[in-house]
Amino acid sequence: MSVSEDPLGTAALLVDSRGRYLLHLRDANKKICDPGTWSIPGGNREGAESSREAVERELLEETGLTVPLEEFTVVDCVGPDGIKGRIRVYLGAWDGDADSLPCPEGIMFRHFGADTIPYLTMCPWTKEVIDLHQAQAPTSVPQARPGGRARLNVVGVHLYLEQDGQVLLGLRHPDSAYAGSTHHFLAGHCEQESAVACLVREAEEEAGLVIDPEDVELAHVVHMVDEPGAQPRVGFVFRARQWTGTPQVREPDRCVSWGWWPADALPDRVVPYTRAAIEGVRAGRLYTEMGW
Protein backbone atom coordinates (compact mmCIF):
# COMPACT_ATOMS: atom_id res chain seq x y z
CA MET A 1 0.00 0.00 0.00
CA SER A 2 1.42 3.42 -0.90
CA VAL A 3 1.31 6.35 1.53
CA SER A 4 -1.14 8.19 -0.73
CA GLU A 5 -3.62 5.32 -0.31
CA ASP A 6 -3.51 5.49 3.49
CA PRO A 7 -6.48 7.12 5.25
CA LEU A 8 -5.68 10.56 6.59
CA GLY A 9 -6.67 9.66 10.15
CA THR A 10 -4.94 7.22 12.48
CA ALA A 11 -5.70 5.92 15.97
CA ALA A 12 -4.42 3.38 18.50
CA LEU A 13 -6.65 1.00 20.45
CA LEU A 14 -4.66 -0.05 23.54
CA VAL A 15 -5.93 -2.97 25.63
CA ASP A 16 -4.55 -4.10 28.99
CA SER A 17 -4.25 -7.66 30.30
CA ARG A 18 -7.65 -7.31 31.99
CA GLY A 19 -9.32 -6.53 28.67
CA ARG A 20 -9.82 -2.84 29.49
CA TYR A 21 -9.50 -0.10 26.88
CA LEU A 22 -7.42 3.06 27.29
CA LEU A 23 -9.78 5.93 26.46
CA HIS A 24 -9.16 9.67 26.14
CA LEU A 25 -11.77 12.24 27.16
CA ARG A 26 -11.78 14.93 24.49
CA ASP A 27 -12.29 18.63 25.15
CA ALA A 28 -15.87 19.87 25.02
CA ASN A 29 -17.02 23.16 23.47
CA LYS A 30 -14.22 23.21 20.91
CA LYS A 31 -14.35 22.93 17.13
CA ILE A 32 -12.77 19.49 17.02
CA CYS A 33 -13.91 16.04 16.00
CA ASP A 34 -16.38 14.54 18.47
CA PRO A 35 -15.95 17.11 21.30
CA GLY A 36 -16.74 15.98 24.83
CA THR A 37 -16.62 12.27 24.03
CA TRP A 38 -14.45 9.35 25.06
CA SER A 39 -12.21 8.30 22.20
CA ILE A 40 -8.81 6.70 21.60
CA PRO A 41 -5.51 8.52 20.97
CA GLY A 42 -4.52 9.35 17.41
CA GLY A 43 -4.44 12.03 14.77
CA ASN A 44 -3.93 12.83 11.11
CA ARG A 45 -0.93 12.00 8.96
CA GLU A 46 1.45 14.88 8.30
CA GLY A 47 3.36 15.40 5.09
CA ALA A 48 4.61 12.14 3.58
CA GLU A 49 4.03 10.11 6.76
CA SER A 50 2.56 6.64 6.49
CA SER A 51 -0.32 5.75 8.78
CA ARG A 52 2.03 3.72 10.98
CA GLU A 53 4.49 6.59 11.30
CA ALA A 54 1.66 8.97 12.11
CA VAL A 55 0.00 6.80 14.76
CA GLU A 56 3.34 6.11 16.46
CA ARG A 57 4.10 9.85 16.52
CA GLU A 58 0.63 10.79 17.76
CA LEU A 59 0.68 8.13 20.47
CA LEU A 60 4.05 9.35 21.72
CA GLU A 61 2.93 13.00 21.67
CA GLU A 62 -0.38 12.34 23.43
CA THR A 63 0.63 9.66 25.94
CA GLY A 64 4.43 9.40 26.04
CA LEU A 65 4.11 5.74 25.03
CA THR A 66 5.92 3.66 22.44
CA VAL A 67 4.25 0.26 22.10
CA PRO A 68 4.23 -2.45 19.42
CA LEU A 69 1.21 -1.92 17.15
CA GLU A 70 -0.48 -4.04 14.52
CA GLU A 71 -3.05 -2.99 11.93
CA PHE A 72 -6.59 -3.70 13.10
CA THR A 73 -9.26 -2.01 10.98
CA VAL A 74 -10.33 1.06 9.03
CA VAL A 75 -13.45 3.02 10.02
CA ASP A 76 -15.39 5.96 8.65
CA CYS A 77 -15.61 9.24 10.57
CA VAL A 78 -17.09 12.73 10.26
CA GLY A 79 -14.99 15.84 10.91
CA PRO A 80 -16.07 19.03 12.69
CA ASP A 81 -17.15 20.56 9.36
CA GLY A 82 -19.21 17.53 8.41
CA ILE A 83 -16.55 16.26 6.02
CA LYS A 84 -16.36 12.49 5.86
CA GLY A 85 -13.03 10.75 6.29
CA ARG A 86 -11.43 7.45 7.22
CA ILE A 87 -9.24 6.34 10.12
CA ARG A 88 -6.79 3.46 10.15
CA VAL A 89 -6.82 1.91 13.62
CA TYR A 90 -3.90 -0.01 15.14
CA LEU A 91 -4.06 -2.42 18.06
CA GLY A 92 -1.59 -2.61 20.92
CA ALA A 93 -1.23 -3.82 24.53
CA TRP A 94 -0.39 -1.64 27.53
CA ASP A 95 -0.71 -2.52 31.22
CA GLY A 96 0.24 0.78 32.78
CA ASP A 97 -1.52 3.28 35.05
CA ALA A 98 -3.71 5.67 33.03
CA ASP A 99 -3.40 8.35 35.71
CA SER A 100 0.38 8.43 35.20
CA LEU A 101 0.11 9.47 31.55
CA PRO A 102 0.70 13.06 30.49
CA CYS A 103 -2.35 14.65 28.92
CA PRO A 104 -1.23 17.61 26.78
CA GLU A 105 -4.53 17.48 24.89
CA GLY A 106 -8.02 16.79 26.17
CA ILE A 107 -9.06 16.14 29.77
CA MET A 108 -7.84 12.74 30.97
CA PHE A 109 -7.05 9.11 30.21
CA ARG A 110 -8.87 6.21 31.86
CA HIS A 111 -9.18 2.45 31.47
CA PHE A 112 -12.70 1.08 30.94
CA GLY A 113 -13.96 -2.46 30.64
CA ALA A 114 -16.33 -3.46 27.84
CA ASP A 115 -19.25 -3.55 30.29
CA THR A 116 -18.84 0.18 30.97
CA ILE A 117 -18.58 1.32 27.35
CA PRO A 118 -22.39 1.46 26.74
CA TYR A 119 -22.75 4.01 29.58
CA LEU A 120 -20.12 6.44 28.29
CA THR A 121 -20.61 9.30 25.87
CA MET A 122 -18.58 7.67 23.12
CA CYS A 123 -17.09 8.93 19.91
CA PRO A 124 -19.16 6.95 17.32
CA TRP A 125 -16.24 5.49 15.37
CA THR A 126 -14.41 4.55 18.60
CA LYS A 127 -17.52 2.66 19.76
CA GLU A 128 -17.52 0.89 16.39
CA VAL A 129 -13.86 -0.11 16.82
CA ILE A 130 -14.42 -1.46 20.34
CA ASP A 131 -17.51 -3.39 19.23
CA LEU A 132 -15.45 -4.96 16.45
CA HIS A 133 -12.67 -5.84 18.87
CA GLN A 134 -15.15 -7.38 21.30
CA ALA A 135 -16.57 -9.52 18.51
CA GLN A 136 -13.07 -10.88 17.85
CA ALA A 137 -11.74 -11.04 21.43
CA PRO A 138 -9.77 -12.65 22.94
CA THR A 139 -7.82 -13.76 19.87
CA SER A 140 -7.25 -10.18 18.73
CA VAL A 141 -5.47 -9.00 21.89
CA PRO A 142 -1.71 -8.76 21.27
CA GLN A 143 0.55 -9.71 24.14
CA ALA A 144 2.60 -6.99 25.78
CA ARG A 145 6.30 -7.71 25.48
CA PRO A 146 8.68 -6.91 28.37
CA GLY A 147 10.82 -3.97 27.42
CA GLY A 148 8.74 -3.28 24.31
CA ARG A 149 6.76 -0.36 25.65
CA ALA A 150 7.42 2.95 27.31
CA ARG A 151 6.41 3.16 30.94
CA LEU A 152 6.57 6.31 33.01
CA ASN A 153 8.64 5.90 36.17
CA VAL A 154 7.73 7.54 39.47
CA VAL A 155 10.69 9.60 40.73
CA GLY A 156 11.31 9.80 44.47
CA VAL A 157 14.01 11.52 46.51
CA HIS A 158 15.42 10.27 49.81
CA LEU A 159 17.60 11.93 52.41
CA TYR A 160 20.60 10.06 53.77
CA LEU A 161 21.83 11.80 56.93
CA GLU A 162 24.62 10.25 58.96
CA GLN A 163 26.30 11.42 62.12
CA ASP A 164 28.66 9.45 64.36
CA GLY A 165 27.95 6.30 62.34
CA GLN A 166 24.18 6.60 62.78
CA VAL A 167 21.57 7.11 60.06
CA LEU A 168 18.37 9.16 60.38
CA LEU A 169 15.17 7.15 59.87
CA GLY A 170 11.52 7.97 60.44
CA LEU A 171 8.90 5.57 61.83
CA ARG A 172 5.89 5.80 59.55
CA HIS A 173 2.40 6.12 61.00
CA PRO A 174 0.57 2.77 61.42
CA ASP A 175 -2.25 4.02 59.16
CA SER A 176 0.08 5.29 56.44
CA ALA A 177 -0.91 4.17 52.95
CA TYR A 178 2.67 3.05 52.40
CA ALA A 179 4.90 1.08 54.79
CA GLY A 180 2.88 1.62 57.98
CA SER A 181 4.82 1.04 61.25
CA THR A 182 8.03 0.71 59.23
CA HIS A 183 11.21 2.80 59.27
CA HIS A 184 12.07 4.77 56.16
CA PHE A 185 14.21 7.61 54.86
CA LEU A 186 12.84 11.12 54.87
CA ALA A 187 11.44 11.02 51.35
CA GLY A 188 9.02 12.47 48.83
CA HIS A 189 7.96 12.46 45.18
CA CYS A 190 9.22 15.02 42.70
CA GLU A 191 6.68 17.57 41.59
CA GLN A 192 7.42 20.30 39.01
CA GLU A 193 10.94 20.75 40.41
CA SER A 194 14.42 19.31 40.29
CA ALA A 195 15.28 16.31 42.46
CA VAL A 196 17.56 18.37 44.72
CA ALA A 197 14.93 21.12 45.08
CA CYS A 198 12.42 18.41 46.04
CA LEU A 199 14.82 17.05 48.67
CA VAL A 200 15.37 20.48 50.21
CA ARG A 201 11.62 21.15 50.31
CA GLU A 202 10.73 17.75 51.80
CA ALA A 203 13.42 18.05 54.48
CA GLU A 204 11.94 21.32 55.70
CA GLU A 205 8.30 20.21 55.39
CA GLU A 206 8.71 16.80 57.03
CA ALA A 207 11.36 17.40 59.66
CA GLY A 208 12.14 21.12 59.91
CA LEU A 209 15.64 20.65 58.55
CA VAL A 210 17.27 23.38 56.48
CA ILE A 211 19.64 22.13 53.80
CA ASP A 212 21.68 24.16 51.33
CA PRO A 213 21.52 22.58 47.85
CA GLU A 214 25.27 23.12 47.60
CA ASP A 215 25.71 20.67 50.50
CA VAL A 216 23.86 17.84 48.70
CA GLU A 217 25.50 15.00 46.78
CA LEU A 218 24.09 11.88 45.13
CA ALA A 219 24.84 8.81 47.25
CA HIS A 220 22.82 6.00 45.64
CA VAL A 221 20.08 5.19 43.09
CA VAL A 222 17.52 2.39 43.40
CA HIS A 223 15.45 1.34 40.37
CA MET A 224 12.64 -0.90 41.55
CA VAL A 225 9.25 -2.48 41.05
CA ASP A 226 7.20 -4.06 43.82
CA GLU A 227 6.49 -6.98 41.49
CA PRO A 228 6.98 -7.65 37.76
CA GLY A 229 4.64 -5.45 35.73
CA ALA A 230 3.99 -3.00 38.57
CA GLN A 231 4.64 0.75 38.34
CA PRO A 232 8.44 1.23 38.19
CA ARG A 233 10.06 3.72 40.54
CA VAL A 234 13.42 5.45 40.63
CA GLY A 235 14.69 6.46 44.06
CA PHE A 236 17.47 9.04 44.27
CA VAL A 237 19.23 8.88 47.63
CA PHE A 238 21.04 12.12 48.43
CA ARG A 239 23.52 12.69 51.23
CA ALA A 240 23.58 16.09 52.93
CA ARG A 241 27.06 16.93 54.16
CA GLN A 242 25.63 19.41 56.65
CA TRP A 243 22.27 20.80 57.70
CA THR A 244 20.63 23.11 60.22
CA GLY A 245 18.06 22.02 62.78
CA THR A 246 17.03 18.99 64.80
CA PRO A 247 14.58 16.50 63.22
CA GLN A 248 11.01 17.24 64.31
CA VAL A 249 7.75 15.44 63.56
CA ARG A 250 5.96 17.96 61.33
CA GLU A 251 3.63 15.57 59.48
CA PRO A 252 2.31 13.32 62.30
CA ASP A 253 -0.21 11.63 59.99
CA ARG A 254 2.75 10.18 58.07
CA CYS A 255 5.65 9.94 60.51
CA VAL A 256 5.37 9.44 64.28
CA SER A 257 9.07 9.79 65.22
CA TRP A 258 12.59 10.41 63.97
CA GLY A 259 15.54 8.47 65.28
CA TRP A 260 19.24 7.86 64.72
CA TRP A 261 20.14 4.23 64.12
CA PRO A 262 23.57 2.57 63.85
CA ALA A 263 24.15 1.90 60.16
CA ASP A 264 25.20 -1.66 61.01
CA ALA A 265 22.31 -2.32 63.40
CA LEU A 266 19.14 -1.01 61.73
CA PRO A 267 15.69 -1.72 63.23
CA ASP A 268 13.95 -4.92 62.17
CA ARG A 269 11.19 -3.18 60.22
CA VAL A 270 12.83 -1.08 57.50
CA VAL A 271 11.50 -0.47 53.99
CA PRO A 272 13.44 -3.05 51.91
CA TYR A 273 14.84 -0.60 49.38
CA THR A 274 15.84 1.76 52.20
CA ARG A 275 17.88 -1.01 53.76
CA ALA A 276 19.36 -1.89 50.36
CA ALA A 277 20.28 1.73 49.71
CA ILE A 278 22.00 2.09 53.10
CA GLU A 279 23.96 -1.09 52.44
CA GLY A 280 24.87 0.24 48.99
CA VAL A 281 26.06 3.58 50.38
CA ARG A 282 28.20 1.85 53.01
CA ALA A 283 29.68 -0.46 50.37
CA GLY A 284 30.43 2.43 48.02
CA ARG A 285 28.00 1.25 45.34
CA LEU A 286 26.00 3.80 43.40
CA TYR A 287 23.19 1.64 42.01
CA THR A 288 20.77 -1.12 43.05
CA GLU A 289 17.94 -2.86 41.14
CA MET A 290 15.07 -4.56 42.97
CA GLY A 291 12.00 -6.53 41.87
CA TRP A 292 12.77 -6.86 38.17
Rank of each mutant, 00 (worst) to 15 (best):
Q166G: 04
L169P: 06
G170F: 04
H173G: 04
H173P: 00
P174N: 08
P174E: 02
A177Q: 12
A177D: 13
Y178V: 12
G180N: 05
T182L: 07
H183C: 06
H184M: 09
A187W: 08
G188C: 03
H189L: 10
E191M: 10
Q192N: 14
Q192C: 06
E193G: 08
S194A: 06
A197W: 00
A197M: 03
C198Q: 10
L199K: 02
V200D: 01
E202N: 08
A203H: 09
E205V: 15
E205A: 15
V210F: 10
V216E: 05
E217F: 01
E217T: 13
H223P: 01
V225T: 15
E227N: 01
G229F: 04
G229Q: 06
Q231T: 15
Q231R: 14
R233I: 14
V234C: 05
F238N: 05
R239E: 12
R241K: 14
T244M: 11
T244D: 13
G245Q: 02
R250M: 05
E251I: 14
P252W: 07
C255I: 15
V256Q: 02
S257E: 15
S257D: 09
S257M: 12
A263N: 04
P267A: 02
R269K: 13
R269N: 12
V270K: 11
V270S: 08
V271S: 00
V271H: 03
T274M: 04
A277E: 00
G280A: 13
G280E: 01
V281R: 04
R282L: 11
G284A: 04
E289R: 11
